[in-house]
Design a protein around this nucleic acid. Structure first.
Length: 440
RNA sequence: GCCCUGGUAGUAUAGUCAGGCCUAGUAUAGGCGGCUGUCGCCCGCCUGACCCGGGUUCAAAUCCCGGCCAGGGCGCCA
């Protein structure tokens, strides 16, 4: 009772999920948004949404004051209100409990009619929803998606931290390209030209000298003109880099991490997964490891011819997704298909110590053993028509005792697609940026 | 950059192929009225739309051309 405030009459005492049938008779103050209204004449039902869920506010004509009746006539979906009232055990109410209001304060009204249906009964196209994203995010489905995203991030940080990785943040405004200049966004940096980072790759490699095991969760920017359900111009990359390690070591980190995240999300987000009608299968480790050569053979048997050294086109990945319907690694990629910093095998330089982590046909992560020898790195830069001069600050790290190291980067949004069953990557970003969308 | 598909009330759709029967149907939202246990409440009444420009035709939501916007795909990638 001492939770009731005299100063701010709208200040809440409980969240919706804290109201239980056992609280029958207790006075509470709730705050939130009107999710839906069902007016039966002599009795009216409001669904009040707050950050924890919703609670039914019941307004029986003969049990509440004339003021409440009058005020409730004007209430509309998405109005922001505070309700002071009495908890009532009621078998017929959702969760067996409801609140009978003694006073209602309208804190703000929503403009009617709303541009989309927040109850989700009448669906709206993604483009329409993204234009009014703040309103769209009030719906159950986006709420579930972003709770899962939060839980997944929490699990990732917990796992990496427990495994001895330190979280770092490297610059997003950079002077030179990581892997070539084609897909960078230029920005004006005072009187110079700079770029938005497409990856923390070079910085995280340098940092293994000082911290050995680092991870970074931060945005990456790609100016590629892709327009698909799995591409964004701005996405969050989960990157690790590990000293005294080779590809196989960081593959183990990746598969154990994914197993951990799947387990945590499936345990903590049962309600959210129910809303999304999605089930998470916690994968067994180790994941399948399939070589590039084996992939080529599998595709040949499926009728798709790929010459050795050619990249795998998307339609071919779709075939592979049918053959390997969960997580799997594709390893031993031809060196020429990988960035300059990936280490060629000592015995067979045409093959690299690299891997892609796949989920069905979608690439979730890629990584490998890195080159830690400066001269070899320069040689590989030249082979890829990059100018070592523009990487001189990166190269100097290789003069300061660069250890053997390996790492990977996971596309967070693609992982969230896996965890939620959502098929369009824009749905799992609050305010997505793609080739055509820059607002809101 | 290329390819495919689409644009009808606030939202989602029917109608477009086979032009006229469309004064454009339905659902939901919104307005008004009724209803005391709803949980996609229900019932009645009302408001509200053919993306823009040009062309073909007696006649265009419907066919043609251009533009704009959107969705999906390819290449590339997380």
């Amino acid at each position: 009772m001492e939770r009731l405030s005299r100063v701010y009459p709208w200040r809440r005492t409980h969240y919706s999920n804290e109201i239980t049938p056992e609280m029958d008779g207790e006075k509470v103050v709730l705050a939130g948004w009107v999710k839906d209204i069902r007016d039966l004449g002599g009795i009216k039902f409001l669904l009040l949404r707050d950050k924890e869920g919703f609670i039914q506010i019941t307004i029986p004509r003969d049990e509440v004051s004339e003021d409440i009746i009058k005020l409730s006539e004007d209430l509309q979906r998405q109005d922001c209100i505070s309700v002071r009232g009495k908890v009532r055990r009621m078998a017929k109410a959702p969760r067996g409990v409801e609140v009978i209001p003694e006073s209602i304060i309208v804190l703000n009204r929503a403009k009617q009619p709303l541009p989309i249906d927040i109850t989700g009964k009448t669906p709206a196209d993604i483009d329409v929803r993204l234009d009014v994203r703040v309103l769209d995010l009030a719906r159950d489905e986006p709420q579930a998606i972003f709770r899962i995203r939060h839980t997944a991030l929490e699990a990732i940080r917990e796992f990496l931290s427990k495994n001895g990785f330190i979280e770092v943040h490297t610059p997003k405004i950079i002077a030179t390209a990581t892997e070539g200049g084609a897909s960078l966004f230029p920005v004006i940096y005072f009187e110079r030209e700079a770029f938005l980072a497409q990856s923390p790759q070079l910085y995280k490699e340098q940092l293994v000298i000082d911290f050995e095991k680092v991870y970074e969760i931060s945005p990456a920017f790609r100016a590629e003109k892709s327009h698909t359900r799995r591409h964004l111009a701005e996405f969050v990359s989960v990157d690790i880099e590990m000293a005294f390690a080779v590809a196989e070591d960081v593959m183990e980190v990746a598969e154990r991490l994914l197993q951990h995240v799947c387990r945590v999300v499936s345990e903590k987000c049962k309600r959210e997964l129910e809303i999304l009608k999605h089930k998470i299968i916690v994968p067994e480790v180790p994941f399948k490891r399939i070589t590039y050569d084996e992939i080529i053979n599998e595709l040949r048997e499926a009728g798709v011819k790929i010459n050795w050294g050619e990249d795998v086109p998307t339609p071919a990945f779709r075939i592979l997704g049918k053959l390997h319907p969960y997580f799997y690694f594709i390893v031993d990629w031809p060196t020429n298909l990988k960035p300059f910093y990936i280490k060629p095998r000592d015995d067979k330089p045409e093959i690299s110590e690299s891997f892609d982590l796949m989920w069905h046909w979608i690439e979730i992560a890629s990584g490998g053993t890195r080159i830690h020898d400066k001269e070899l790195l320069i040689k590989r830069m030249k082979e890829q028509n990059l100018n070592p001069e523009s990487f001189k600050y990166h190269l100097q790290a290789f003069e300061f005792g660069m250890p053997p190291h390996a790492g990977w980067g996971i596309g967070l949004e693609r992982l969230i697609m896996v965890l939620t069953g959502i098929r369009n990557i824009r749905e799992v970003v609050l305010f997505p940026r793609d080739r055509f969308r820059l607002v809101p």
